[in-house]
């Protein structure tokens, strides 16, 4: 797999320019990114990285980048189920009114951590044959 075969859905401004990769930039929060991922997976794109970050609460973290395939096949039901479950987790945080922190001073750190997770995903994927 090379970068031309991946689609990155992101709202992280430092992920805007990755050579050769197709980037779908979302103006919105993490929920909007995940709903866009859901649309793409329903349209037959394969989800390649997990939609949630690790050990950073979705309601705290403003940035998220998710990797899918550019190629289209039949929509994968189990992936859609997983996405629905993840969205349920994110929405429950919003319902609880837990998005109350000022993020401005932390923006760069959250962007950097999201980019780090993305880079690890891309490093793992570009070795893979599809």
């Amino acid at each position: 797999m090379d970068l031309q075969q991946v689609l990155i859905i992101t709202n992280n401004p430092i992920v805007k320019n990755i050579n050769n990769a197709e980037i779908c930039f979302v103006r919105g929060d993490q929920r909007q990114v995940l709903y866009q991922v859901l649309n793409k997976v329903a349209g037959g794109h394969t989800l390649l990285s997990h939609p949630l970050a690790g050990s950073i609460k979705t309601e705290d973290n403003p940035y998220r980048s998710v990797v899918l395939s550019t190629s289209i096949t039949e929509a994968n039901l189990s992936t859609l189920n997983m996405l629905e479950y993840c969205l349920g987790k994110v929405e429950s945080g919003v319902r609880d009114g837990m998005q109350s922190r000022q993020h401005d001073q932390l923006a760069q750190d959250f962007q950097m951590i999201d980019k780090e997770l993305l880079d690890n995903a891309l490093q793992s994927l570009i070795r893979r044959q599809v």
Binding site: L52, C86, K89, S92
Partner: peptide, 15 residues
């Protein structure tokens, strides 16, 4: 668990 402040929300992101 991350079940919300009242403990009533979904605890894990998978099940």
């Amino acid at each position: 668990e991350y079940a919300g402040r009242d403990g009533a929300s979904q605890s894990l992101a998978d099940a």
